[in-house]
């Protein structure tokens, strides 16, 4: 049982760090700030949450486990809020979508 817990937590660690790597590669390769936001706020949050879950699984006492899970819930709540705010601010100020973007639902109707 104890060995199984250790193996599961090791697997979560590696998978979580892999998600973080995928997110940063997306940050590097995607063309504009709105598409990069997909990588950073979804895969990045997933990565750090998986690693905190690994810590929660590995922890022996209930206090550490519940604090790690509270951290996971906190990140899951705040990551969409912050990246939505950033995207909305960037769009309102006038940062353009990349030329390869196929549609822009927020474009004003009279300009379309």
């Amino acid at each position: 049982m104890n060995e199984l817990v250790t193996l599961v937590s090791a697997a979560f660690l590696v998978i979580g760090s892999f998600f973080a790597l995928v997110a940063s590669i997306g940050l590097l390769r995607l063309p504009d700030v709105y598409t990069r936001m997909h990588a950073a706020s979804k895969a990045g949050t997933m990565g750090s949450c998986l690693m905190l879950i690994a810590l929660a699984i590995h922890a022996t006492d209930v206090g550490t486990m519940s604090r790690a899970l509270a951290g996971v819930v906190f990140f899951l709540l705040t990551a969409p809020v912050s990246s939505h705010l950033l995207a909305k601010a960037a769009y309102a100020v006038g940062y353009r979508l990349h030329a390869s973007a196929v549609m822009d639902d927020m474009k004003p109707k009279d300009e379309a």
Binding site: L27, V33, A40, G44, M51, L86
Partner: peptide
């Protein structure tokens, strides 16, 4: 700013490990 956000997420992962 997005990069800094991502950096914080990675640092949290580091802290967990």
């Amino acid at each position: 700013i997005l990069g800094l956000d991502m950096l914080v997420a990675i640092a949290i992962g580091f802290i967990a490990v």
